[in-house]
């Protein structure tokens, strides 16, 4: 089986690869969300602390 055939997915390429693409999006969202939360939270907490000590 060639790569071209593989990506063609027997004519169902749009449906199959959109599904896998959506899965990738969901994984990325769930990985990025806690990282963003961490950044924002630590920035806020450090700022709050320096304001108190000042």
């Amino acid at each position: 089986m060639s790569w071209g055939e593989f990506f063609h997915m027997g004519g169902y390429a749009v449906y199959v690869w959109s599904s896998y693409g959506m899965a990738l999006l969901v994984l990325v969202y769930n990985i990025v969300a806690p990282i963003l939360r961490k950044r924002r939270l630590l920035r806020d907490l450090v700022r709050e602390k320096s304001r108190k000590s000042a």
């Binding site: 593989f6 997915m9 027997g10 004519g11 169902y12 449906y15 199959v16 599904s19 896998y20 959506m22 899965a23 969901v26």
Partner: peptide
């Protein structure tokens, strides 16, 4: 799922969505 499993006898290659859809 994508390289070893054969195509489905009724649904052809489209059934490979199962490996995302059912676990989700």
């Amino acid at each position: 799922g994508l390289f070893v499993a054969p195509a489905d006898y009724q649904q052809g290659e489209s059934y490979r969505i199962i490996f995302i859809h059912v676990p989700a």
